[in-house]
Each structure stands twice: as structure tokens, then as C-alpha cells.
Design a protein around this nucleic acid. Structure first.
Lengths: 144, 144
DNA sequence: CGATTTAGGTCAATCATGTTGACTTTATTG
DNA sequence: CAATAAAGTCAACATGATTGACCTAAATCG
């Protein structure tokens, strides 16, 4: 059995984790909401940014949603000029997705708020603390 | 403009945060899902555990959902014998909520998996790293 | 006391988001 | 040429949330 004071400290850590994560995700959420975009749009932007030229089927795989659930949000992004499409050269059936300039700008804005937040607290805490934080978070992800 | 290598490091930190938080929330989610319970049920258990004797209206306030959205899940928890109710002594209109023994046990199980996880990585990383982690997460929550 | 407000609860309509199943078109491949 | 695969669409349905209207019982105000 773990010491009672230790349990209190661990409960505090749970709360801390929760609130820190919420603070961390709030800025992008606000930006997206202002544009009428939701989680799926965000994930599309995220994955297309990281692997431009990806196909719809590949996106279906990573996102783990149905074709129908993807199609609406994806169409909106294309219509909004945030995602561009090109017909595949090898396989003309496939549609190659990429971010437009506007799409890249939005994606950079979303990531940017989070990078700025992290940079701020890392700077305030110092390099050793940053390294400790990274090590701990890495351990949490498991032996992967 | 932030250095490009630094940007790469910060992007890594974003991913790390995301995956660590998912790993952190996965065990309780699995336990809840096995019982057919969802997020609302979890939040009810959480808040009732931390302030036994709360009323339904108070719960509506903290959870920020509609009366109708709360009522279903709350009724299920009462019917499942996880949450107990008592009529208020001062105000007989109000219903005082508390966890039953079974409810406490489930809540302890949920928190317990997360406490065990944190204890494991804190132990592995050492007290200084733990302190750095807490300081950083606290800073992220803002000047509150 | 009587009127109003409050706590809890319910019914109904509606919206958002997701699902599965069936199907079409176009292009690739055996 | 036949079978398969990529993209997309239509329909039916499930879930979880919302708002609005309304009810009962209990408290409180004047």
C-alpha cells in the first residue's frame, strides 16, 4: 500500500495533468471553432501536413473513421481552399492531398500556439527541467 | 523567429504530450467501457467523490451540461448502486449525492490505475525529475 | 396565508456526428 | 475481358447532446 501523503500528491498530479492538457489544447480549439471546424478537420490538416501527397484511403486508415465520416469534413476543407487535390500520376483513381498555402498557414497557426506555449514554459523552467519533462512523458508512453 | 532545430524539438514535444496523455487516460477509459459507462458517468463519479453531499444543481454547474443530459447517466449510476441519494435535511427539495461503497471502489480503481502509472514513472525518473515535471505542468496551467 | 421561486424530473423536437450497407463511376490489374 | 480497387454518394439508423415546455413538491417572500 502506498503512503497516504503520497496518494494525495499523486492525486494532485492527476489534476495537474488534466488541467495542463486542457490549457495546452484550448488555443487550437478556439482557433478551429472560430472557423467552424472540428476535431476531424484538425486531424486531416495535421496528417496531410505531415505527409503531403497522401491519398484518401491512407487518411481513412490513420484516422480510423468511415469513408462517409471523412468525406464531409474533407470536402469542406477543399472548398475552403485549405486542402488541395491532385490526380495521382501512377494511379489516376487516387486523389493526392496536400495543404494549400492557406492550409499551411492555418496548420502553422494551430501548431504555433502550442509551440509558443511550450517554449514559454520550457524557457521559464530551464533546460534540465525540460529534459526531465520529456523523459517522464516518454516513459508514460510506455516501452515503445 | 525561433530556430528551426528548436521548432523540430517543440513539435516532438507536442506529439509527446499528446501520446503521453492518451496513455494516461486509456486505462480508466477501458475500465469504464467494460461497464458500459462513458465520460459523463466518469465525471459524475469524480465530482461526487470529491464533494460528497453535492446536489444535482451543483453538479449541473460544474459539469456544464443540460439537466436532461445529466439525468440519464446519473439515474444509471444510482440504479447500478454506485451513487447513493438522500433527501436534504434543510431543504427537502434537494437530493444529496454520494458514492456507495461500490461507487467508491470503482472510483478508486479508476484513479488507482492513473496513480500507479504516475508512481511508476516518477520512481523511474527520480524526485528531481518529478518536481520539474510538476513545476512545468503547473506553469502550463497559467498564472492561476 | 397566498403567490412566486427553486430543485428535481420528464416529454418532445431537433441537431451533430458517427455508423453500416448498398451502389456507382472510373481506373487498374490479372 | 473480368475482377478488383479508389473515390464518392444515398439511405437508414444510433448516440449524445441541445433547447423549450411543462409538472410536482418544497421553500420563501410579502
Amino acid at each position: 500500500m502506498i503512503d497516504l501523503n503520497r496518494q494525495v500528491r499523486l492525486r494532485e498530479a492527476i489534476e495537474l495533468f488534466f488541467h495542463a492538457y486542457r490549457a495546452f489544447t484550448a488555443p487550437p480549439d478556439r482557433i478551429l471553432e472560430a472557423r467552424g471546424l472540428g476535431r476531424v478537420h484538425h486531424r486531416i490538416l495535421y496528417f496531410v501536413a505531415r505527409s503531403p501527397g497522401t491519398t484518401v484511403t491512407a487518411l481513412l486508415g490513420v484516422l480510423g473513421v468511415s469513408k462517409q465520416a471523412l468525406n464531409g469534413p474533407l470536402r469542406q476543407l477543399v472548398e475552403a481552399g485549405l486542402v488541395g487535390t491532385a490526380t495521382g500520376t501512377h494511379d489516376k483513381r487516387s486523389k493526392l492531398l496536400s495543404l494549400t498555402e492557406a492550409g499551411s498557414a492555418l496548420e502553422a497557426e494551430l501548431s504555433g500556439t502550442q509551440m509558443a506555449l511550450l517554449e514559454e514554459v520550457f524557457t521559464a523552467a530551464g533546460p534540465d527541467a525540460e529534459q526531465a519533462w520529456r523523459a517522464l512523458m516518454g516513459k508514460l508512453c510506455g516501452p515503445g
